[in-house]
Design a protein around this nucleic acid. Structure first.
Lengths: 199, 199
DNA sequence: TAAGATACTGAACGTTTATTCAGTATTATA
DNA sequence: TATAATACTGAATAAACGTTCAGTATCTTA
């Protein structure tokens, strides 16, 4: 293994980790390069050696999250027999991931501020759409399996996303167990809310 | 009526309105004084004549929202006979208010960034607690009236808040009718989710 | 081991930002 | 109407910020 490549990989990860935490905590604009420099323990120039600029670093983090999610989910999904199980599994993962929801407040802030280059804007739009589609497909599968009966799948996909997104804010001030419980309860309320009428 | 007082009131409102819209759109940090100056059509100095500083302006907006909410709610609450009706009424109000949720992403960003003076921190903490308490009391009333049966009221108060908060983000890109429908559906899912088992 | 490539430093630069303040216009007061 | 109080202006200031770059250290390659 090339020692330089290894070094690059390592520091790139160190920067990414520091940046992710800070962005999630403080938001995009409020996180300065100097903040990241201090947290990562490297120079400002080094950040610009590994990433095009602050925007590029942020986009990298978003896409990195996506990659990891796809990978993790692909492996985990099979373990859950029903859609209901899958939804609980998803809730658990999001609860434990901490920096969980992809559309964090930072992304939202990032997205809504000042004009981005059209290609950047499109990439973000696609991501947001992707999250909703993900929910929608999951819910649709539950309908197909007759686990629940709902009319407006796309609206419910948004509602599910809203619930998880909002929960992410509150649970940031909670302990691990409390967080897990909150996510589980949220999913239970949601599922009960869309359940087939008992018979 | 004093003409000076009138003038002060008017421009203070003009600044507050402009700032509120911008903060809600772009977030706290990303909204510059110059942005507000342009939107309000006054000088930078004038803002500092009416408000202590940017932080003071923001806190004023938060507390202003609270005042208005208390007032509106006090008047509206009586019109709704059951707790379920009240919750739907609340959803409708939040949907139509646009800059609706008090704990917008701007507040969240504001709150999480850098140390605030202890008194400021406490004021914000009290506000957040207030929103949750509001939900909790409403839900408790529903339980007392035997409209629904739930065990963990305080957790559900947070879940309700999460749902409404998250929805606020998504509906910002929706039209009026779509927004209303989304809030109504969200509340229906929530209520169905905590409903007494049908018998 | 010499030469080139790669990884990194940190001071410097130009912008943007919140905030101030000396000065001006408008209104209230006596 | 003269004087004081209030409302406001906008250029100046200093701090913070993202970004660059000449230079240095480390590693790869031939």
């Amino acid at each position: 293994m090339n020692k330089k490549k290894q070094q690059t990989e390592q520091t790139k990860k160190k920067i990414a980790d520091a940046a992710r935490t800070l962005f999630a905590q403080k938001g995009y604009k409020a996180t300065s390069i100097e903040d990241i420099v201090n947290a990562a323990g490297c120079s400002a120039g080094n950040i610009y050696y590994h990433f095009k600029n602050k925007e590029g670093l942020f986009l990298y983090l978003l896409e990195d999250w996506n990659r990891e999610w796809d990978q993790t989910w692909l492996a985990k999904e099979k373990l859950y027999p029903t859609t209901v199980d899958k939804l609980f599994g998803m809730a658990e993962y999001l609860a434990l991931d901490q920096l969980s929801h992809p559309l964090t407040k930072a992304s939202d802030e990032f997205f809504n501020n000042s004009e981005k280059a059209p290609d950047v804007e499109e990439r973000i739009n696609n991501m947001v759409k992707g999250y909703i589609d993900f929910n929608q497909q999951l819910l649709q599968k539950g309908i197909d399996n007759q686990e629940f009966e709902i009319a407006d799948v796309s609206s419910l996909a948004i509602i599910l996303d809203s619930l998880l997104f909002g929960l992410n804010l509150h649970t940031r001030r909670m302990e691990r167990e409390e967080t897990l419980a909150a996510y589980r309860l949220a999913m239970r309320v949601f599922l009960h809310g869309i359940a087939k009428p008992a018979r």
